[in-house]
Structure formats: structure tokens, C-alpha cells
Design a protein around this nucleic acid. Structure first.
Lengths: 138, 138
DNA sequence: CATAAGGGTTCCCCTGACTGGAAGGTCAAT
DNA sequence: ATTGACCTTCCAGTCAGGGGAACCCTTATG
């Protein structure tokens, strides 16, 4: 199967599939004219990758997951561990965004949003004290 | 003031401050030895940038916000508009993450996480049907 | 036979917002 | 004179691809 068909079936753009070959996630064959030739197992693997990526797993996580998937002697604990770590990262990200959202919503609510210059949003950004750092950054 | 002191006071790494000069967000003076020399107004602006970035505003948003901040004839509606759009983006991101989280949590919960190979997480990634695309991607 | 359309190929640059590191100049203190 | 802590510029890398150029392959059509 050529890359275009694989793109349609796996739901991944051709560019992405080439990139995945580049970084060694799939290894399609090549036909005489130089075109990539994908087996069913390649298509399957790409679909797997697409779903893992849709759940937000990093490429490196995907690499591990594929390896575990292909290792019939795996322990599900390993898979679960990867998923749990990812879940934790997602939770952190959500918490971070929720905090931003809360602050921002308060500011937006406080701003008249009319033709006058007075703006609590700018006032907040300009004036809020930032905790002094004990160790110098950079 | 030299960059190290500014870093301490603004809470931004020196690297970031140099980068902000690079992209025209701040324009510190230069002393005879080539060192950047920051005025109070520069430090103030950098702190403003740091807080806007902490709220998740993009650099381009920051550029607009700084411009509005410095324009005493601004209309608060413009500021509010930027903030509202950002708020919408944050909400989308949170929704996306929440959906991932829900799926992932279900899978993690279903996985025994022991020494056996059976794994609902891998099974899900491997088998779930993806809606057929009507238009070919990539 | 020429050519056009619609595949495919490689290659390199671009994204955002920095971060890391090398090679070297400056300054204060020892 | 030399250390060490600053500072400078410049280049490369991050993550996960996207855009587009320049070119090859295959099939259909005039």
C-alpha cells in the first residue's frame, strides 16, 4: 500500500507518516520505484500511534507503548505505569490552566471593556508584586 | 542596571531577557563596554511581560498588551478583547485535556497493572475504530 | 508522441519560546 | 598575574510535525 492510502486509513497525514519513519517508529518496505510500501501491520501500528498521540502521549511514550504492545511477554504494570505518569502530567497541566483561567476570568470580569482607558487587566499586570527569588535565575 | 540584576528583580532568566531584546520587546541601552544597561522602565516592562506570560499570553499578545499599556489613550475594550480570546483558548485547551484525562483514567482503572500481559490500555489503542475520514489528510 | 494531472520522493526551512553551551571580552579582588 | 564572576555573540537543539521547492513515476487523454 502506498503512503496516500495509508494516510487515509490511519487518519495520519502523509507528512507525519514519513516523519514517523524518519524517527524509526515504522519501517515500511520500498518498492522498485522508491515508493514506500506499507504492510497491514504497518498500517495497524500507525493507527495505534495516532490513537496514542490523540491521548496526548509523547512520541517517546509511544515508542515504549509500541514496544510493549509487540512484546507478548510484557507485564501490564509497565503499560499502566506509563499511562499513570501521563495522567499525572495531564492533571498538572489542567491545574495550571485552571489557575490561569481563574485569574484571567476575574480580571476580564473586572474590566469595563469600553472606550475608556482604565483597565484592571493592565493594572494587574503592571503592579502585582512577584515573590522575590532567593536564587537568581538564568 | 546589568542583566543579572534585572533577572533577579524581574524574575526572568537572563537568556529570556536577551531573547526579549532580540524580538524587540525591550530596548535596553548599552554602556561603553557593550553591556546592556536597563532603566527602571525596562525592568518594569520585563516584570509586566513575566506576569503576562505566566497567565499564558503569547509573545504576540504580550506585544499588543505592552503597546496598549503604554498608550494612555487606549480603550479598555481592546485589552479585554485580547484577554477574552485568550480565555477562550484556555477553555478549549482545558476541555481537550479533560477529555484525554477521562479516557485515560478509565483505561488506567481497567488495567490490572500486574505481571500478566493482558492490558486494556494496549487493547484499546490497538483496536479502537477511528471514524473514517471523508477527506484525505496530508 | 506530448503533455497534464495526480501520485510519490528528498531536502531544507519554519514554527514558539525559549534553553544550553562554546568562545571570548570585562571587571573587581586577590 | 590570575582567578572568578560577570558579560557578550552566535549556533544548535527542543517537540512534533507543516510548507513548499524541485524532481521522479504512472496513467489518461488529445
Amino acid at each position: 500500500m502506498n503512503i496516500g492510502d495509508v494516510a487515509t486509513r490511519s487518519g495520519l497525514p502523509s507528512k507525519t507518516i514519513r516523519y514517523y519513519e524518519d524517527i524509526g517508529l515504522v519501517k515500511p518496505l520500498r518498492s522498485a520505484n522508491g515508493y514506500r510500501t506499507f504492510r497491514d501491520s504497518d498500517v495497524h501500528k500507525l493507527a495505534f500511534l495516532g490513537r496514542a498521540r490523540a491521548l496526548g502521549f509523547s512520541i517517546e511514550d509511544c515508542r515504549s507503548l509500541i514496544k510493549l504492545y509487540e512484546d507478548t511477554g510484557r507485564e501490564s504494570a509497565e503499560v499502566k505505569h506509563i499511562a499513570e505518569e501521563h495522567l499525572t502530567r495531564i492533571d498538572s497541566k489542567i491545574a495550571e490552566l485552571a489557575e490561569m483561567r481563574a485569574t484571567l476570568a476575574t480580571l476580564v470580569h473586572a474590566c469595563a471593556g469600553d472606550d475608556r482607558p482604565d483597565c484592571p487587566i493592565l493594572a494587574d499586570l503592571a503592579s502585582k508584586q512577584q515573590g522575590a527569588r532567593l536564587t537568581k535565575p538564568g
